[in-house]
Amino acid sequence: MSSTPILEMRGINKSFGAVQVLHSVDFRVYAGEVMALVGDNGAGKSTLVKCVAGIYPMDSGEILFEGAPVHIHGPRDASALGIEIVYQDLALCDNLDIVQNMFLGRENLTSVRTLDEGTMERRARQTLAGLSVRTVKSVRQVVSELSGGQRQTTAIAKAVLWNNRVVLLDEPTAALGVAQTDQVLDLVRRLATNGLGVVLISHNMNDVMKVADRITALYLGKVAAEVKTSEITHAQVVELITAGRTGNIGLKPAEAAQSA
């Protein structure tokens, strides 16, 4: 494991009006690892993600990409760095097929400026094959015919296709059944195996314990703890989420109480 995180956020503060949502949050992701970002509703998970995405400007703090400070002022800056966010609503067009969705807005063109379907189809297949996806029957299936898991797979494959370095997944298994959840978690694991930095935002502790290398727990806008999954139990993570501390891990008792 490289010692420099591929993406690091230091001392992020963010307020909406009088409400401070993030209190000097530190967050880092290593290439080849799955970092779970957990926390109760309102803990600031989405806000943090939207700061990385360039949707919200930060009040203070800095973002480092591969150790170098970067400025993210908009979604395009994030994409340019190779940071891709797969939102919960997936943003797929039901009336287009998998290939068309994966290349939407970035289509390959032939020399006469028409759509190069052959190249796109081949690249889509290579990407899916690279992720060992076996759940999709045909890359020419229209999204409206796909199951929830297949849609999630398509959205993740779309994020991988563009040579991204960091992929943030917002509740990828929330709407899925048991078997499909397993498939998507396998896929998440493979993203890390393929060398990407993966951020998994999830409410589901089973998913987190199964697939994450590290866990960052947010408690009311503060980082309660950043721990290795192997060094913590399911119950402890739940305690971190609900109380901000567990045993000697987490916020100081006074701080946790004061935040609440």
Binding site: Q126, A129, G130, R134, S138, V160, L161, N194, G195, L196
Partner: peptide, 18 residues
């Protein structure tokens, strides 16, 4: 695109029923 990320996994395509 995938040269750096998926090179290792690429040979599995033979088993990928597309």
């Amino acid at each position: 695109v995938l040269a750096n990320t998926a090179a290792a996994a690429a040979p599995t395509e033979a088993g990928f029923s597309v």
